[in-house]
Simulated scan of single mutants.
Amino acid sequence: MLPGSPMPPRSCLHRATSPTTSAELDALRRRVWREQGVVSLAIDDVTDPWLRQALINEATRRWGARGGRHGA
């Protein structure tokens, strides 16, 4: 930011907190699974190749292909 320039816009959605840690993210995933029955998995954490591909196929069918290094 340049000296004397206006402050950036503020929003009630802005949270001045640090990024979520791995432990916090895991706790959030556990909670949403227990309370809502929703599974959140990092695809690289699924070690079984068949299961990983099945999850990728279903996610792609529902929400479209991913960008980036995972492509397809």
Rank of each mutant, 00 (worst) to 15 (best):
G68C: 03
D45R: 04
G68S: 03
P8G: 05
G67Y: 04
L51Y: 03
L41Y: 07
P8W: 03
L2C: 02
A54S: 04
R30C: 09
M7P: 07
D45Y: 01
D26E: 13
H70S: 04
R61C: 04
H14Q: 10
G68F: 02
G4I: 10
P19G: 01
M1V: 05
D44G: 08
P6A: 15
D26H: 13
A54H: 02
E35S: 14
P9E: 03
G68T: 01
S11A: 12
S18G: 14
A27F: 05
P3E: 01
G4R: 03
L13G: 09
P49A: 11
E58S: 12
L2F: 04
P49Q: 12
R66S: 05
R29L: 11
L2Q: 06
P9L: 12
D44T: 12
R29Q: 12
P6R: 15
P19E: 01
I43S: 10
A16H: 14
P49T: 12
L41R: 13
V46W: 07
D26V: 00
D44S: 11
D44E: 12
V46K: 10
L2S: 02
R10I: 13
Q36N: 09
H14N: 13
L13N: 13
R52Q: 08
P3A: 12
D26Y: 03
R15K: 14
P9T: 03
S5A: 15
V46D: 02
G64Q: 02
P8I: 02
T17V: 15
S22Y: 06
W33M: 11
D45W: 01
R61L: 07
G71C: 08
E58I: 10
M1Q: 11
L2Y: 04
A59S: 08
P6H: 14
I43H: 10
A65Q: 08
P6L: 13
R62Y: 05
R66P: 00
R31H: 09
T20E: 15
I56Q: 02
V46N: 04
T20H: 08
M1G: 15
A65H: 04
P9C: 01
R61Y: 09
A59R: 10
T17N: 13
G71F: 06
W63Y: 08
G67K: 07
R52N: 00
V46S: 06
E35F: 01
T17K: 05
T17P: 00
M1F: 11
I56E: 06
A23E: 14
Q36E: 06
H14D: 05
R30W: 02
D26A: 10
R10C: 14
R34W: 08
A16I: 09
A23L: 11
R62Q: 11
M1P: 14
P6C: 09
W63F: 11
P3Y: 03
T20G: 01
V32G: 00
A27V: 00
G67V: 06
S5K: 09
L55W: 01
C12D: 07
L51D: 01
R61S: 13
S11I: 02
R30F: 04
L25C: 12
R31N: 04
L25P: 00
N57R: 06
S22G: 05
A59Y: 08
L25V: 05
S11N: 08
H14C: 09
G37F: 00
P9R: 00
R15L: 14
L55D: 00
T20D: 13
S5L: 05
R61N: 07
P9A: 05
V39T: 10
W50G: 06
W33P: 00
C12I: 15
I43Q: 08
T60N: 02
M7K: 15
G4V: 09
